[in-house]
Design a protein around this nucleic acid. Structure first.
Length: 118
RNA sequence: CCAGACGGCCGGACGACCGCUGGCGGGGGCAACUCCGCUGGAGGAAAGUCCGGGCUCCACGGAAAUACGGUGCCGGCUAACGGCCGGCGAGGGUGACCUCAGGGAAAGUGCCACAGAAAAUAAACCGCCGGCGCGAUUUCGGUCUCGCAGGCAAGGGUGAAACGGUGCGGUAAGAGCGCACCGCGCCCCUGGCAACAGGGGCGGCAGGGUAAACCCCACCGGGAGCAAGACCGAAUAGGGGUGGCCGGCGAGGCGCGAAAGCGUUGACGCAGGGGCAUUUCCGCCCUGUCAUCCGGGUUGGUCGCGUCAGGCGCGCAGCGAUGCGCGUCGCAGAGGAAUGGUCGUCUCGUUGUCGUGCAAGCGAUGGCGGACAGAACCCGGCUUACAGGCCGUCUGGCAAG
RNA sequence: CGGAGCGUAGCGCAGCCUGGUAGCGCAUCAGUCUGGGGGACUGAGGGUCGUGGGUUCGAAUCCCGCCGCUCCGA
């Protein structure tokens, strides 16, 4: 883990308005294991993350597990290669829960290329 | 051994690597924060939000009544409850056991489709019975059709339900008309705190069902909810105070003066200026400026926020719910929301293959699966969901001793 | 956290309060009119009344427990 990342651990989007902003103005990339929304910012702060799982995916236990897998996959991925100046929203879907963990990480990498921020 | 009833309990285990978060200790930093170590970190339902409380704010002089809502056999337990325990009654089951339920239908009002004569002041469709009259017939005893005025409710038929039931007697036919038993009502006695049960006597039956129809009776309930509530409090806009400076006209106020008048005054009006995209008119809104202070208050932050109707063990009392005593333990605290991610070994269930065996089975190996479900202020219940498994008590059946 | 409402035929609704027959429109099917289509007319079929219990002689309707959906308020 890089010292820079550790010094300021991956911050999260907090408010509903920020999520809506990313959804409205950002770019969107659906892949098998998730949907990625990305919105570049005009600063050089570390990338901020938001995780969303809708009620359609399942009950609270299923949603929790889906979100935690996304979170962990993102953590491992961006600890290895940190990013700056972008807000990322990862949206869980049905397949997220059963997806092989390595495939899920690949999904995130592919989605990053698709939105053009990788 | 098989089938079943009831009660209680568990809710995969261990390890490795990488993380999140609370507390404590230590180091660094003015601080925010950060690093290291130790330690804690989801459930029996955390769920649904159906009840009862704690807590907080609001309202309120006390009490009662009305309205509304809820509850409803009896006794007990409990902080309280619509909960729990024990008992009573009714229904179901061969049984262990399960399910249901307040009283009042004579306080009153309403409803009971279709069918049926009649659905609640009772009434009489087919009928039954004797009497009278006309007629027919006759073996002269009667028998039958029709009509009239009566008696009856046993039988038929309808219905979920027909104004007690069954039997015997009785009668012209019948009828609680009489009797026996059952049911029902009233009174008394016995047992029980009581619900109620048992027994005796009397009554000759009056009072169909429905109150999870309106309702009557008894008891309970003030309202809202941790987004309660308390504190801190940025930027911007707006409110108010004080002071300095600038400022056209008028009204009014104040001061001086006998008056004219003069001075003063940002609380009024007008003018002037600005805004409502632009122009004209109309309309509406804002309006001197600078400094400083005050109060309210949004985003945000802090608290509320983890020591209690607490868990466990033992003893005592009680059939039990539960209570009392002693000992012991400290046991989640997030806030787009921690309690995890990945992997391995084992375990459990299921299934395939192979070996062995007459078989039950045993051994090896592989696949798949491991439920329901995530604290959001806390607690007591209820309800609902749940793979698989364990323990205990009891019932029925089969076999053996 | 608190509150309100809905679920009935393929679709949209009524019936529920006041319990006994489930009805309306569109759609579907058949027939007639027309050379055919469209259209009109006539007729027919189609409903576990979301689900499980209870009350009642009888429940879509009354009562209770669940399931799903929608909408408010803080």
């Amino acid at each position: 883990m890089s010292a820079a990342f550790k010094a300021s651990p991956c911050p999260t989007l907090q408010r509903r308005a920020e999520f809506l902003c990313v959804a409205a103005k950002g770019r969107k990339a659906p892949v098998h294991g998730l949907v990625l929304q990305a919105l570049p910012r005009d600063d050089t702060g570390p990338a901020r993350f938001g995780f969303t799982v809708t009620k359609k995916v399942g009950n609270a236990v299923v949603r929790n597990r889906t979100r935690r897998r996304l979170k962990e996959a993102a953590r491992l991925l961006f600890a290895a290669s940190p990013m700056i100046g972008v807000d990322l929203v990862l949206i869980g879907r049905d397949a997220t829960r059963g997806r092989d963990f390595l495939d899920l990480q690949d999904d995130i990498r592919r989605a990053m290329r698709k939105v053009g921020v990788a």
